[in-house]
Design a protein around this nucleic acid. Structure first.
Lengths: 327, 327
DNA sequence: TTCTGTATATCAATCGTTTATCATTTTAAG
DNA sequence: CTTAAAATGATAAACGATTGATATACAGAA
């Protein structure tokens, strides 16, 4: 049915050895042979069986991409960028949604391993490191600390928190609240946003309130009730910094419902700068994460690591404030 | 390094044949053998090599999922649901973003084929059918007509258009516009929304305007300028039906900018009912697509078709109006 | 005792590649 | 004309599974 390398060899009047050499650019090959093989391949509509190739090479050109969420715009954005960078380098994406479930994350790691992926890109997962130690597959983490990982890529969360605080204070805010650090046992890079934010608040003598969120809020993307609680319990609040744009968009809704004008009465700064940030009214001021560069770096690290090269253990990329209409 | 079936056989004191039989539930097997193999597998931390399995079986348990966009909330939602349904049935997802580019779609089809996927789920792609005819892989299309496909799944676009028109007219609108049919040569199921909408308008004697959009708007998700043009060129407009919630959200922004109150001065109905629909102020009235069921159906059709079963050629699922705050 | 069903073993081919050897032929340079 | 380098061939062993064929035990039933 589907043509094999043998068929190509026969059609081109050569042996599989030569054809394989041409396919993999190894050894001495004449132009005429190259041409004959190209013709035969076209004629037979031949495409190498990647499964057989992967078996022989003990590794595929597939990247296992593990994320905790897909519908969340941040991850949609992330997946899109990783896919694109992977495509450029000839890698395919095996998409794994752990849904924040330890056991699914574990299972997906096993699945990646038994599918002999070239490497794994792990987004802010949560399981302990031990699941990776057996693997001889490069693991690149994004927005996640992982002792045993091959390399990690983060944005400058700490600086992001500082920038947000400085901006809000410069806008005249005196009662700030930060919403979004997730309540879990595992420390995450994103927690640094809170640290940076608080540091500036302390420094400037501005009151600061930290509101942690629960994991199921992250899953359901539902923060409205919580935000309403904050704004009624702490009516003096005049500036909010949220850990992502979804929370910021909901803060906007709640303010509207409560009759608090934005940015007049209260100012909001989000994080991520995903598409929703410019789809709200007013549009969100937010901290831009360099998603393309993050994805590019991650894929590049994976590529190099899978070829046995030594790679940077940790890469931190800068965030930038995008001023729109909520400050 | 990684344990193979041979290692398991040796450890269990059995042959690979028996171990394989146990793994695949074939032939006569005693409980004691089953136990011995289970123990050996645990001890060696064995997982079958899926690559080898796929090579032998001439098919993997991977589904090629081809979409034109990932960041677009509708597709993020779709991908999330397909992944979840696939996971339940033991399939993995090879994520392919065609970015509306014919040649990428073609290439991804080839890639899926050379990776011996169990089947392809194709979302509203655009290339001609001929690319599929050579394939002996089931192709399930979603929101896409495809003569040579195995099966297709759609929502009831026609009825959706009708529901939207009826609702807007019932709300007192007399000058309606529909935005979002994409200007391309290939007819798509989504075009039926416009048909249904227009039909009711004609029937009720309400003025109707059809505004087609360009593909690059879909890619960039940027409709603001166009919408502003519509509302200034046709100031009598008092009801808008959009082909997705992104357009509706932007209509909301434009109305705000133009000082047109929603739903007071103008009413809006979106389509899809993705997360953004409830993140705007006011929240969007929209037509809900049963995404979970669509994904479930698609995966199920693929599963059955890949096992050689006969499947329904076309499945149409109902849409429902979700009334929120823009009508 | 013979038959039948259950449970395993042994052996080997197969899936479609890659690759190591070793051998052979062609080509070009000296 | 030699000789080395370049180009290809022939063969076969992997990679890690599945599977068919054939054989061999050992039950319990007839």
């Amino acid at each position: 049915m589907m043509a094999t390398i043998k068929d190509v060899a026969k059609e081109a009047g050569l042996t599989v050895t030569t054809v394989s050499r041409i396919l993999n650019n190894r050894g001495y090959i004449s132009d005429s042979a190259r041409q004959k093989v190209a013709d035969a391949m076209k004629k037979l509509n031949y495409r190498p069986n990647e499964v057989a190739r992967s078996l022989q090479n003990r590794s595929s050109n597939i990247i296992g991409l593990i994320v905790p969420h897909i519908r969340h715009p941040y991850f949609a954005e992330a997946i899109s960028n990783v896919e694109n960078e992977a495509y450029k380098k000839g890698y395919k994406i095996l998409l794994c949604n752990s849904q924040c479930m330890d056991e699914r994350e574990r299972e997906y790691i096993e699945i990646c391993s038994s599918n002999r992926v070239a490497g794994i890109i792990l987004f802010s997962g949560q399981i302990a490191v031990d699941a990776f130690v057996k693997l001889d597959v490069p693991v690149i983490t994004i927005e996640r600390f992982l002792d045993n990982g091959t390399a990690s890529v983060e944005c400058d969360n700490y600086e992001g928190g500082k920038i947000a605080a400085r901006k809000l204070i410069a806008c005249g805010c005196r009662h700030l609240v930060h919403v979004g650090s997730v309540n879990r046992n595992l420390p995450m890079p994103a927690d640094l946003r809170s640290r940076g934010f608080q540091e500036i608040c302390d420094q400037e003598g501005v009151s600061f309130l930290e509101m942690v969120t629960e994991e199921d809020q992250f899953n359901s993307m539902n923060y409205a009730k919580m935000l309403e609680g904050i704004l009624t319990d702490y009516p003096e609040t005049d500036g909010i910094f949220t850990n992502n744009d979804i929370i910021a968009a909901q803060a906007l809704q709640v303010c509207h419902r409560l009759g608090m004008s934005v940015p007049g009465r209260l100012k909001i700064i989000g994080f991520d700068d995903v598409s929703i940030a410019s789809l709200t009214t007013p549009m969100l001021t937010t901290l831009h994460q360099p998603m393309k560069e993050i994805a590019e770096t991650a894929v590049d690290l994976l590529d190099r690591a899978s070829k046995g090269k030594l790679v940077a253990r940790r890469t931190v990329l800068p965030v930038t404030l995008i001023e729109r209409e909520t400050t």
